[in-house]
Design a protein around this nucleic acid. Sequence first.
DNA 1: CGTGCGGCCTGAATGC
DNA 2: TGCATTCAGGCCGCAC
Length: 266
Amino acid sequence: MPELPEVENVVRGLKKNILNKKICGVEVLTESIINGDQNFTQKVQGQIIEDIQRRGKYIIIKLNQGNLLIHLRMTGKLLYNGDKDKHTHLILYLSQDTWLSYKDVRKFGRILYLSDSQLQNYLATKVGLEPLEMSFEEFSQRIMKKKGPIKKNLLDQGVIAGIGNIYADEILFASGVKPQYPTEKLDPADLKAIYENIKSILAIAIEAGGSTIRDYVDSTGKAGDFQNFHKVYGRFGQACVRCNSSLDKTKIAGRTTVFCPDCQKG
DNA sequence: CGTGCGGCCTGAATGC
DNA sequence: TGCATTCAGGCCGCAC
């Protein structure tokens, strides 16, 4: 499930391979992936790929006119020169006999063509702070406007963009705060710890190539390593690496949540 | 306006 | 063994 570190690795891979290439042809195999946009091919064909950026969990491919806004959701993959199979939904044929394909077993992901103003509007209304760039003041101001379980608010993309289920649990374990701990009760030391761990865990995960749980790979087909360093995600019932207690499990905001009942406060 | 939940999807894992 | 059910979790849209 691609979160910020995985998406960042996809973007880095794409930058090596598709920058400045021309989109010579478009093959739409599954209409729902482009939200049924009947003019998609016409809008994209012939354009040059000028830049590739990440914003939260979104990939933005900047064209000479307009943008592709891509979200991989759970099982989406953008592959450079990848093979075509029954889960391939879109192929962009590029210059120099290369191609970029979109593969997605569950078809949750989306690839939308947006003008510059549409893109700016979309990001401004839906996507919150960029975790690797936010200041402590920005973070604490935003998060303290929220109530309820801290994990729920770390997952809220309108507050901070890019944290999903894996990294939320890992960040809160490292911070010594239970995922269900009420946001409004966090003291300054908790906030500081959570802030620092957001930055450090995401940065380390990026350098490890992200986490591969089932099938995440970057645009060159390479899996990540960070799953080998998870301390709570996927470790329900196993021993806490800090205090040796048995890790507990619950549901928060509809998601499986693993935490240590003894060395996380709350 | 905010909140919570069903729907979207498929394949792997689990239950009987 | 085989069939049915559950689970995985991001985000949208809708009901309240």
